[in-house]
Design a protein around this nucleic acid. Structure first.
Lengths: 163, 163
DNA sequence: ATAATATGGTTTGATATCAAACTATCTTGC
DNA sequence: GCAAGATAGTTTGATATCAAACCATATTAT
């Protein structure tokens, strides 16, 4: 066993990247779930890197963009629309408020609740992010090329059926 | 402002799901990145739920499946192949060892390293998971239908270009 | 040979997420 | 009206992940 193992190891060292590729594709070649996960991760990392350069957190784009569509919203509405748990928003909204990108005011009609609104800074930040997001999505579109329409329709079906 | 807000709120309460849909689609309608993320999340949750029913963690499937292809591997090899950071594997491998699904033995040729091997239990667990994964992927294939090939090729391109 | 460097694995720290428990307030049913 | 239940937001606890620091061991270069 010892001898066998060490020989194997030596081979791995030389042929690792090729072996690895072979192994992955022999297992996951045809698996939609696997490719979906890898592609999404790659796309997310690319976007996160682009926004991170501007010292922004990736989750902020969705929040600011949704907020930019309306005068004000409650955290719960935001959470539903962005598809994130309410509890997740607490710290994001705090960060956004600390950075002066949003305003929060208590709702006089309901003491439990408050409404969130973009500040001027928040709006211009949203615009900066929008540029990055647009560029990112344009890149994705280029890659998808003429298959974009089909690709999107499959994604939409997956979400609809599995949600 | 108060009055306006409360009216808005009342409308939201009634028309929330419709408004929400409209808002989301008006913003993200055509955004590949968004749909990719949502679809991947839905697919992952569905799979996690299926495996969770068997008291298994979702990440285990990939590890056990890769291990099932070879006599033994090191954590580093596993990490490269599964596309996860080495540090992430420490706890997963500990869990798998605690559950008796893998064996770990020090490599006599390199004191820093050890090799990981499926136990009998590990192999049968892998087979159980494989059934679940197969069913899951069959579901995804059904949803993709005749677009499967195109869909997979776009995913593969995305991963290749963005990685 | 030995000093410098690289490597394998773990630890720690940061982030993002969900879910369940919790507090305070609102609404309902009686 | 008031008690019982629902709802808004936060807190806490669990999980999963990456990245950087870290330690011990190997490898390399001189």
């Amino acid at each position: 066993m010892t001898g066998k193992l060490s020989v194997e190891r030596a081979n791995d060292a030389r042929a690792s990247s090729r072996d690895t590729q072979d192994l992955i594709s022999s297992i996951f070649q045809n698996r939609i779930g696997y490719h979906l996960r890898v592609a999404q991760e790659a796309s997310f990392q690319t976007f996160a890197k682009a926004t991170g350069g501007a010292d922004l957190k990736p989750g902020w784009y969705a929040l600011l963009t949704v907020l930019a569509q309306r005068d004000s919203m409650t955290p719960s509405e935001l959470s539903r629309i962005c598809g994130r748990d309410r509890s997740t928003l607490t710290s994001s909204l705090k960060d956004l408020a600390d950075r002066g990108l949003i305003d929060r005011q208590l709702n006089p009609d309901d003491q439990r609740s408050y409404s969130v609104r973009l500040t001027e800074d928040g709006r211009s930040m949203q615009e900066r992010l929008q540029v990055i997001a647009d560029a990112h999505d344009r890149l994705l579109e280029e890659i998808a090329g003429e298959d974009k329409k089909v690709f999107l329709s499959v994604l939409a079906r997956l979400s609809a059926v599995l949600s």
